[in-house]
Design a protein around this nucleic acid. Sequence first.
DNA 1: CGTTTCATTGAGTGCGATCAAGCCGTGTGG
DNA 2: CCACACGGCTTGATCGCACTCAATGAAACG
Lengths: 219, 219
Amino acid sequence: MRNIVETTAATAFTPGVASLTDTMDQMGVRMTFARDEEIFAQGEEADLIYRLVSGSVRTTRLMHDGRRQIGEFHYMGEIFGIEANDEHRFSGEALTDCVVTVLRRSAFVALVRSHPDLERQFWSATAKALQRSQDHLLLIGRKTACEKVASFLIDMAERQKAELVSLPMGRQDMADYLGLTIETVSRMLTQLQSSRMVEFTDSRHFRIPSRQSLARFCQ
Amino acid sequence: MRNIVETTAATAFTPGVASLTDTMDQMGVRMTFARDEEIFAQGEEADLIYRLVSGSVRTTRLMHDGRRQIGEFHYMGEIFGIEANDEHRFSGEALTDCVVTVLRRSAFVALVRSHPDLERQFWSATAKALQRSQDHLLLIGRKTACEKVASFLIDMAERQKAELVSLPMGRQDMADYLGLTIETVSRMLTQLQSSRMVEFTDSRHFRIPSRQSLARFCQ
DNA sequence: CGTTTCATTGAGTGCGATCAAGCCGTGTGG
DNA sequence: CCACACGGCTTGATCGCACTCAATGAAACG
């Protein structure tokens, strides 16, 4: 454990109309993680809840033989590490250097119980996660390699306001998110680029000339 | 609409320590659906919440060209049709003839708000759904056809207490749940059967001689 | 008994995986 | 400043698993 998490603030704090994330930031303890560092491990007790102040995180699940599935990428402001049971079913790993605020689950549950508004916000976040997971099922189960990569690029572009979109993850992470191999991801990217659907300035930055055109590749 | 849903009971009802599902059954309106009938449609306003009294349900999502992904199968007792937004992202269809209790979402939210215990049960159900969806991601994204089918059979066996497990869905539904074709599902089933991993009495009923042996096929 | 629907089996194809180089930007030390 | 190594990415050649297309088998139903 890198840091002792203090929960003493919980009893003193009264949020009023504060947002869930603001409240977590005020009550939680700030921690930093370096790129590729593990934040929590698959199988570990899920007694902490995390909010991402800056940087990006991936949640991954590993099979015995090394096959890997990325459950979700999390970006600035998002909550992650929520579990229905008391055990983490995914590992959480820092995609880039990042800062998180950490809250004990028990403190979180107590807080949320006494502030129904926060509870609703929290439920909404969970339901959104479910939605994204279900959307992803269709992508992984039924889309072609090209459609998967195109959908991913559009999703990234929609999450970022900037015209030039940046990819915090490498090709292997993209592959493990989309249920493909690194080679196939690379091939589809060059294919999309030579069809003028995307323009990469370098391997981690791209822009989409016409969102609509690219969307046609996603079905 | 087949049936007008009454919500007058909501104000009069006080659940005490009743379970969420019991409460829904008491407050909701009972409806019946025939096999393959649509309970709610993809894109439709999600103003109702459903609990399955008897029978089975599939939630499906369709692409323009007919490709289909099944999100989840629901069995007796389960709640389904919950959405984060006000629009259904999946269709709900009766897998078999079934009976459901239906509750207006607004009534449900009001009820849940005034009874924190119910709210916790509801949240737990949502979190479990998220968990199942995430488990399914690994299956669809990274498992082989054989592993997918074996995992599915074990999951079915675990949900039913009986030694002889019955499949309420046809081969096409299995295929669309696992991200395979109907032919591949059929081939894997005969392959598993000729390896003595499962015994089918007919196409819809099977038993597993050794759970452990079959589990080895799931990785 | 014919018709329909669902499941199985077979033959051949193709998409994405695998195996193997090659490329390129970055960092390091001489 | 160059030589070299290293990791991440791309590209090429080949393979194989799952898909497609097609036929057959087996129940269910009128």
